[in-house]
Nucleic acid binder design. Sequence first.
DNA 1: TTGTAAGCGTTATCAT
DNA 2: ATGATAACGCTTACAA
Lengths: 352, 352
Amino acid sequence: MVLRGHRSGGWPRVTMADVAREANVSNASVSRYLDGVVPVSEATRAAIVTAIEKTGYIRNDAARQLAKTTSDTVGLLLRDPRNPAYGAMHAELQARTAQRRLQLLTVASPLDFPEADERAGLRRLLQNRVGGMLIATGVIAPEELVPFVSAVPTVVLGRPEEHPALHAVCYDEVANGRLIADQVLALGHRDVAVVVPGRQVSVAEHLRSTVIVERLRAGGAHAVTVPTDHSVRYPADRSTSEVVKLARAGRVSAVMLPTDMRLLAFLGEAQQAGVRVPEDVSATGIDGLLPGLELLGLATVRLPVETLTRRGMDVLTDLMTAELISEHPHTAHHEAHPGDFRPGRTLQPNRS
Amino acid sequence: MVLRGHRSGGWPRVTMADVAREANVSNASVSRYLDGVVPVSEATRAAIVTAIEKTGYIRNDAARQLAKTTSDTVGLLLRDPRNPAYGAMHAELQARTAQRRLQLLTVASPLDFPEADERAGLRRLLQNRVGGMLIATGVIAPEELVPFVSAVPTVVLGRPEEHPALHAVCYDEVANGRLIADQVLALGHRDVAVVVPGRQVSVAEHLRSTVIVERLRAGGAHAVTVPTDHSVRYPADRSTSEVVKLARAGRVSAVMLPTDMRLLAFLGEAQQAGVRVPEDVSATGIDGLLPGLELLGLATVRLPVETLTRRGMDVLTDLMTAELISEHPHTAHHEAHPGDFRPGRTLQPNRS
DNA sequence: TTGTAAGCGTTATCAT
DNA sequence: ATGATAACGCTTACAA
């Protein structure tokens, strides 16, 4: 499909030259006025302003980007807008970029073909010559990311990243996993089911779950792992039914899931199967970002989105300006931010 | 802040000319190969492919856009990514644009300064010379939209729009309001509180609520309206406490809110105030898009996002191709899609 | 099928 | 402070 763009239909596009002619000044003056950094005389300013009003001129960003070799657009690769955890991140980043007078260009990757699409999304961002990139908890492997990173300042956001060439501001998934595992242990649970997504599903989820399992075992509990290769789409995949089955059989007194969306899925299936939470089995998630969380009484860890996005933007802009002065640190920046445990009625002392 | 972009730091940018030189062909051949529509000989194809591999070339989209006067990017103005209703829309649209080999450029407007920011967002989209625009339930007035619309094919999405110059694919808020009001009436409620947001908060919400009020009154019920000038941020604004007060005083047997997020806020405050839902008062929302909906048992109307986004993209691409052949319909296209009532335990027969 | 060259609408350099 | 004019990297007639 070939689509005609802006030039079509309506009036012929008005360019900067039109404005200049209308205002009886040079092209350059208009450009300078628009930039606002070099001062122009009051007379020309006035002429330009009215000319712009009259013509309805809007600056062509493509031409601008081509002429400047710099960009004030930040690219965001976003995993799944449907998931409130990413929605919150998107909203936060939007606000923070606006604050810094930067643009945010968002590319979302549909859940269904993550790998291929994240690569394509990355390319699209690069084609747009973004000045910096934010990778929000993608599934793409670090090695694949590295070649891109040499082209543009990039910060991996949210997902734990140890790669020496990738700057990262992430959730402290190790701390988070321990935090909630300790709560479960403290309440006397000794037989616990844990859903463990593969790392190709989500690096973060995989890490959370494995940490939880380790911690449970270190604490003397018996942890039953239930693997899954499916994304957190609600409603659920097979691992959920698996866990419900374990609960119904009384084989576990608690069920732990790496995200609140999965917890929701579990609660839904449990309800249908007649398994009561928390009477029959306790359950926990991680996120703390779902609207309605408190009403449902989800026991979870609240991720620090606000801190994450703030620090992420800090690091990225530092990087972008550092490149400006050709200062290349050879050690990538890594930082991790733990969340807070949020008690909820889905997690109760073990009564069995 | 001045930020250096792509050109900085890493290697000097490789251009199409570099690829052409490497492959011993002309610039034009490379361009044609990349476009894929005009065939090139096998020999040149092979040479180009290896040259691209070797150089790591990535096409500069700004230059491309400048040279073509058309764009295959669709701009999306999105209200609030934190709200699952918009998150769902975003995800859907992402998938649908990808399907049509179009790009989706998203600009989100933070809740706090809707009016000014939506105008700015629109400008940004236009500066990017998008080939089409999707306005997802903004708050900006139709009159303000019209001048932009003459520049680019535009479809208003989700929010009810009657303006003769604006194409719109929206939720049938009248049908939705009636649908749920009828349910409440049928269950014998005769004293009902309705939260009514101002139209400057949200055109859609305003309409939903006023329709509900009308319908209730037409059905012989007494409707208490509680106005609000605040956005649907959870937790709540004063109108929520107001409604809780009415419920506690026993002045109403049901409370109706124009969105599920508001319903959530109400449920939260009610719980804290010791008002039981549905024992003391029934409550309804509209959306049906919250994850965990069924668990909470929200009585609501499920909005048809899938249909909306599909039709929206249909209309937009029609418009974009119609402009191509200079065919200008003088009557704007309007269509509305009703949702489905979803029963939930928050809505019960009136027992008072 | 391939190459040449004239734009596309800005910004930036260098005079003035 | 302002005005020419050369990039910027690509597409697309038009020629060959």
